[in-house]
Design a protein around this nucleic acid. Sequence first.
DNA 1: GATGAATGAGCGTTCATTCAT
DNA 2: GATGAATGAACGCTCATTCAT
Lengths: 214, 214, 214, 214
Amino acid sequence: MRIHSGGLAISSPGPKDKRRRIHDAAVKVFAEKGFYNARVSDIAKEAGVADGTIYLYFKNKDDLLISLFEDRMEEIIANFKASLVGIDTPEAQLQRFITLHLKMVADQPRLAEVLTVELRQSSKFMHEYRAPGFREYLGLLEDIIAAGQGSGLFDPSLHPTLLKRVIFGALDEVSLHWVSARRKPYDLDRAAAEIWSICAHGLVRRAGSHAENT
Amino acid sequence: MRIHSGGLAISSPGPKDKRRRIHDAAVKVFAEKGFYNARVSDIAKEAGVADGTIYLYFKNKDDLLISLFEDRMEEIIANFKASLVGIDTPEAQLQRFITLHLKMVADQPRLAEVLTVELRQSSKFMHEYRAPGFREYLGLLEDIIAAGQGSGLFDPSLHPTLLKRVIFGALDEVSLHWVSARRKPYDLDRAAAEIWSICAHGLVRRAGSHAENT
Amino acid sequence: MRIHSGGLAISSPGPKDKRRRIHDAAVKVFAEKGFYNARVSDIAKEAGVADGTIYLYFKNKDDLLISLFEDRMEEIIANFKASLVGIDTPEAQLQRFITLHLKMVADQPRLAEVLTVELRQSSKFMHEYRAPGFREYLGLLEDIIAAGQGSGLFDPSLHPTLLKRVIFGALDEVSLHWVSARRKPYDLDRAAAEIWSICAHGLVRRAGSHAENT
Amino acid sequence: MRIHSGGLAISSPGPKDKRRRIHDAAVKVFAEKGFYNARVSDIAKEAGVADGTIYLYFKNKDDLLISLFEDRMEEIIANFKASLVGIDTPEAQLQRFITLHLKMVADQPRLAEVLTVELRQSSKFMHEYRAPGFREYLGLLEDIIAAGQGSGLFDPSLHPTLLKRVIFGALDEVSLHWVSARRKPYDLDRAAAEIWSICAHGLVRRAGSHAENT
DNA sequence: GATGAATGAGCGTTCATTCAT
DNA sequence: GATGAATGAACGCTCATTCAT
């Protein structure tokens, strides 16, 4: 499965995709150095354009990051929606969501790192930016949870807002750790299975209930 | 429960605790503006000292942040250890850990924000810094998990490294959201109970098993 | 009286007068923003041409300003000469010169502003440019003065170089003030009459000599 | 007569007068290159300070120029007032004013150039800055004129606003020319005398009236 | 120890100019 | 001739750090 055509595809150096190339370069440089330590000229060099060219496509350095969020999250959300469309039960949907999230991380680790780490900062350095893309992403999770609670499958006493944060936080922390770790202590397929298992049944073993992970 | 006397205590302007006052000021300023947007002179002003004084106690701005991690995490870990000492079962310990984590967040939201957000950056702006305090914190979790799995209470098929990240990630994301949200959608006591419930039993309702949260 | 068809005439978008259109656009933009704050692309947009087109007609931004001086001053001087041609006495010529100068300002305030303000800068930003057009303009004044002194009408003890500067300076300052003032404190016809009166008789009232202004 | 202690005085390199030294350096550099072509680092080097030091004393480059106007005009106006204080007749006052203006130009040619040339631009690059110091300077002239007209000495039919502009413009243009000319075609003492003569009696010779310049 | 004025390296951004189409 | 996307040198300004007092 390809999550999206992605920052890794070396697009033909045609005249149209400058914006994309700059975004891709920014992902690489931001992932390596972080937003604040990345120089605009680093990104320009990585993208193979002049410094000034960046300002033909983006208002400023902040806008470069924000537009990156928006564009990539839009792609990711569209992909998730498409991948979830034929799945009936909330359980299967949640399992799928977990898998997709980690798949995305595995396919585009640098993008994942940027979205994850810099998004945290975003509430700081952009006073107003509410990260609508991120909210929509969480919205996907919330819909699944709501459906599950509505159908009686998921414990209805759990607060949905809290629940989506719990699941997202687990996925995010695992992703970030996996991305930054040199030696990968586990592969992400297994991680997906285990996280699903934890979500589904928790970690306390009950009499007669063996773990039923996929 | 007070985790420690905290950044809010206006210490007597005695001659001894300059280092502490600077740390406290840094927590406040970093939480408000983020590490990169915080100016050293902001911190100096907040601490009521001259800019240069900061360099009598800390090597540079990075060191100020790192030492903050180390000092505070040390306190936190000591507190956690003390609070966990009399508790026998891994289940109760984990439940306690969750409660303590969120308690700390509620009591010292700015410190929580700094430790949470800036720690993420730390892997960036300090290439070498391995955040030993953070590792030890996670080590507490891992010990609980190991004990639980060793005694057969927790599902032994779950990878401990993954598991501790899952739990920490859930706590961290919930904390960060709670800290930055203006309208608090849930209180942290309830959050602790629900997170424990999810950890323990997952979110899928099983026949005959009503949620047993506190 | 129209000094020339001027920057205000919307010339037909024919293929010939690009140079003129760019000059006119430059007058407008320079008058609004000043030379240094005017962007070449502003002028291009105002002229309805592409940025690069400007460089087909002018060597660079400085050349655009300099050529503007030269072209417009040439027109102005030709107009002045034509208007002065039938006038016999130096007194009447000087009176006419004053009137013509202020007429030009009234008809083409933006051009006046550019010629006036930017000319002052020109001795700065162009180390070499001696503004030959401007010198010729002053030469008209000098000729009138010389004729007046030669015929004994004007006080011969006054230094001609100084005198022309005095007269030009008075005209220039009044023009600039009038151009930039929102509420016009006097109209330029009256100004011409009074300036002539001052030039002719000074401002000290003498016994038995009532002002003989128009 | 010293107009003021002045930019030319090499003040002891004490710790107090940094602001003054930067102002003086700015006068020199602005006079040589013009405001827009002057680099802040040029001024810093000329003042013998680091670039950043300038920003301890001035908000930005514009503020450096504006504060220069204000400080220097204040000094100049105070000097003028002091020098005019004992003079009774408006005629003598006006004569004195003319002399003082040209004296100032002779003593501080670079300052005169900056005040003159950049002031013209100021109405452009500073949209709001109304140059209060300059208005007060013109106010001195206006007071003299009003007194002269009130006492019947000066022609009351002349518009005072216009008149002050005429006189100031004459002085200004003569000053600017004198400052920028390499070979000085006249000395400023003589210029003062002649300008006074023109103001007083005009340039038309009348029967029986020999020029009565000082 | 404490101060805070001074430093100057570093970077985001602009915009006159070019040149492939 | 005309275009306008691309260029990259240039510069104003910031702020972590120093050091004379």
